[in-house]
Write a protein that binds this DNA or RNA. Structure first.
Lengths: 162, 162
DNA sequence: CCAAATTCTTGATCTAGATCAACGCCATTA
DNA sequence: TAATGGCGTTGATCTAGATCAAGAATTTGG
């Protein structure tokens, strides 16, 4: 593991580049997003203390991604290259068990989010999210939360009120 | 493995029940969906020849699910109980490698779909889907495709025209 | 092969949430 | 501490796609 730091609004990865690392967050918050056709950020997810970080599809497939990974607050992370990651599984096959279960969890979480995005109204998504909003996300600009919930900052602001 | 058959519009699993099986489809098409607050079907995914089937979160967590799994065409599948599934990994740890990679793929696929759902217009989703629509899905009622693409059958029909 | 039930289509209308615009308020850096 | 640029709020307006309705076409089970 190698330790790295990023300042607020620095990029860990940008669209068009290949993600070379798998990260674990020590402190700070990062957002993964893509730019849509109109050029504004569409947040897909966040990473913060204790969670994994990195542009995962690009890392695994070793292909350029469409994602940006940006530090929203000053961040410290540890990271590992793809070859280290691969050799981990080669050398210690018992890690596959862990990998299987972790991916299982991530999969179920993503399906959960998908269901919430397509079945709930903006208001419902807002309340559901705010009820279980992790502490580190309470201090980032609201526009990122709005984007993650697939609504505009204006809508988010209005829901906040009423 | 045990072989089972379902007629058109029979349920493999219903909301409120625990999914006891992990399936592989021999032939036929199934849809996984939930009923939203207004009581209409929200299709989350399809299974067909060669793919896995089953309500996966319920199966893994052994908890009642909110999903329905319905045969859209007469279907033949093979299935395995949770205890068989578990013992497979216990007895043959080399399956964990396979499991890890399969879950990885499923995860990337789900994220891909999520991105498409939130960044593309109905028209774009329609065309993207139709361009790569797997053969078995060409013969199921369009309303299921519409729902999967998160639009009404009316919208789907209009896009089909123009 | 026919009757009943689904599914598909088409048009008219409606609405949640987006977009546009303008202003006030913090925060950051010099 | 002043200036500057992002952020949040609020109001007015707009629009993609939903909803409602009703007829036509297709399935399908008996």
């Amino acid at each position: 593991w190698e330790e790295v730091s990023y300042k607020r609004s620095e990029f860990l990865t940008e669209a068009g580049k290949i993600e070379r690392y798998f990260y674990v967050v020590i402190s700070g918050v990062q957002a993964i997003y893509i730019l849509n056709q109109q050029g504004d950020k569409q947040v897909i997810g966040f990473a913060f203390d204790g969670s994994f970080s990195g542009v995962y599809d690009s890392f695994l497939l070793e292909k350029p991604s469409h994602y940006f990974l940006e530090a929203l607050t000053p961040s410290r992370l540890i990271r590992m290259t793809k070859s280290k990651y691969d050799s981990l599984f080669e050398q210690f096959p018992e890690f596959d068990r862990w990998g299987r279960l972790v991916h299982q969890q991530l999969l179920l979480g993503r399906v959960q989010r998908e269901v919430e995005l397509i079945t709930l109204s903006a208001k419902e998504r807002y309340h559901l999210f705010m009820d279980r909003c992790p502490e580190p996300l309470r201090n980032i600009p609201q526009k990122y939360l709005a984007s993650y919930l697939n609504m505009t900052p204006e809508t988010f602001s209005r829901l906040r009120k009423g």
